[in-house]
Design a binder for these strands. Structure first.
Length: 446
RNA sequence: GUGGACAUAGCUCAAUGGCAGAGCACUAGACUGUGGAUCUAGUGGUUGCGGGUUCAAAUCCCGUUGUCCACCCCA
């Protein structure tokens, strides 16, 4: 009796990444990693599972509902899959307090959120986080934004804008509106939608939230400043003069803007927008996110300053700031807009060594080893099919170069090298094989 | 968490109440010194799953699971 077959499938919202996509993925990660390291950020790895207590009470009640619990039947610890990379970093900073500051780390790793899957939203997805622990200066925030700019730029993004705000201005806004604590969430959510639904939409939303008509009018008057665009910070400073938190926030923004200019970030790549809100509760200062208009996949980066978070683990707290690049969404956008450079190709293989017959198999194996040792990614064709079929295989798979060594070449101590893109073929002495291919490959990858 | 669309071979899809099909992929064979082939043959299905209506259901109805899309929220 054969046992019943198990339906091959993956959990909801999770995916297999097949080799062709994996090649694109690794390209993106390599670029991002390169940019991170160019700023001196260093890698960190933490477990996929954290103690449940490590995660609870950090993200706010709405986000907390999405945390996956991961119990072992006989386990004595309450465990959960990590929800992001920032909280684990804070745990690390609290655990190893002698790590040299500023602690500049990056981490590229999966996180899990039990959300309902949708376009650009998965239940398991990678985040690429860069954070700076131990620096309260806006220089750190400026550096983070600079990293975002350099990474997106290097990946070929042209139309993007990093939106910057600070929790301090938002707090001032709440005071200005005079709404009680429990209405703040609704207020923030409403003004966050300004870009999307416009002034009238926000007005309605605020009314629905039960805000007094007078308060709504007051707020809308302020929101018009953002819509108008010019001199937003200067205007805010006047209008929010009575709210010290807001003034501190405005000062932060102005300092930050100065640094961004000095770092050489083009002015049209970022924007101060005091109506941008980020959901996570732990942010305390500047917050930033990047949204691309087309295709609509939501934000591709998001982050901010969280000076109090490490203090939730230990009495000795540290200021911290950082961002997350959403690699899944970045890949989705790049795929949709065809932004991958042709040089990545559809395969990692750069050369295919063909086979002629049983007598030449040993020679083919030798050639393959020689190429691999010379750093050429080489695949050996596994059967002595007709040469046409072997070349066809290379063409189909996108392997750029084919090595042909039949009896004629072997007898002469030569190999024939075929460039699949041009169809040109060149016969060279065997010892010239690896150097010639190396030259061809480096030309290809430029 | 709320709403909508969809679910047929490994993939893309056809069949609208009356025999479950095509293309691609896959397997075997033919072809043995040069481009994604061609020829021949073949495998592949409890039509997501469970129930109901009917002489008869891939097709109509109910439930369920999954996928996609939008909202909420978010990378």
């Amino acid at each position: 009796m054969t046992p019943p077959k198990v339906q091959p499938r993956v959990p909801r919202g999770m995916r297999d990444i097949l080799p062709q996509q994996m090649i694109q993925r690794q390209y993106v990660m390599d670029v991002v990693r390169g940019v991170f390291e160019s700023f001196g950020f260093e890698p960190l790895q933490t477990p996929s599972l954290e103690l449940k207590d490590t995660l609870m009470g950090k993200y706010g009640p709405d986000a907390e509902k999405l945390i996956y619990y991961a119990q072992h039947a006989q386990g004595s610890e309450d465990l959960a899959l990590r929800y992001d990379l920032s909280v684990p970093l804070c745990r690390v900073a609290a655990m190893y307090r002698d790590l040299r500051k500023p602690l500049k780390r990056y981490q590229i790793a999966p996180v899990w959120r039990a959300e309902r899957p949708q376009k650009g939203r998965y239940r398991e997805f990678y985040q690429c986080d860069v954070d700076i622990v131990g620096c309260e200066s806006m220089l750190a925030d400026a550096e983070i934004i600079s990293v975002i700019y350099e990474a997106l730029n290097k990946l070929g993004f042209a139309q993007f804008r990093v939106t910057i705000n600070t929790r301090k201005i938002l707090a001032g806004l709440g005071q200005y509106a005079g709404v009680p604590e429990e209405q703040l969430g609704g207020l923030y959510r409403a003004i966050d939608k300004l870009q999307k639904i416009g002034l009238e939409g926000v007005k309605e939303e605020l009314r629905e939230n039960g805000l007094a008509e007078e308060v709504v009018t007051r707020l809308l008057d302020l929101l018009r400043v953002q819509v108008a665009g010019e001199q937003v910070l200067a205007e805010l400073r006047e209008r929010l003069a009575d709210y010290p938190v807001a003034l501190r926030g405005i000062a932060e923004m102005e300092e930050l803007r100065g640094y961004l200019a000095a770092l050489g970030i083009p002015e049209d790549r970022y924007q101060m927008d005091f109506t941008m809100v980020r959901g996570l509760e732990y942010y305390t200062g500047p917050i930033y996110e990047t949204v691309v208009e087309e295709p609509k996949v939501g934000s591709i980066t998001g982050g901010g300053r969280y000076d109090e978070l490490i203090g939730m683990f230990t009495n000795t707290s540290f200021p911290a700031t950082g961002t997350s690049l959403g690699i899944e969404r970045i890949i989705d956008v790049m795929t949709e807009l065809n932004m991958f450079p042709a040089s990545i190709g559809a395969t990692v293989t750069r050369a295919l060594v063909t086979q002629f017959d049983a007598n030449s198999t040993a020679a083919s194996l030798g050639l393959a080893t020689e190429l691999r040792r010379a750093g050429v990614k080489t695949e050996l064709y596994f059967s002595a099919d007709s040469l046409g079929k072997q070349i066809g295989y290379a063409a189909k798979k996108g392997i750029p170069f084919v090595v042909i060594a039949g009896p004629d070449e072997l007898a002469a101590g030569q190999v024939a090298l075929r460039d699949m893109s041009s169809g040109q073929q060149q016969t060279v002495a065997r010892e010239q094989m690896a150097p010639t291919l190396q030259t061809w490959i480096s030309r290809l990858e430029k």
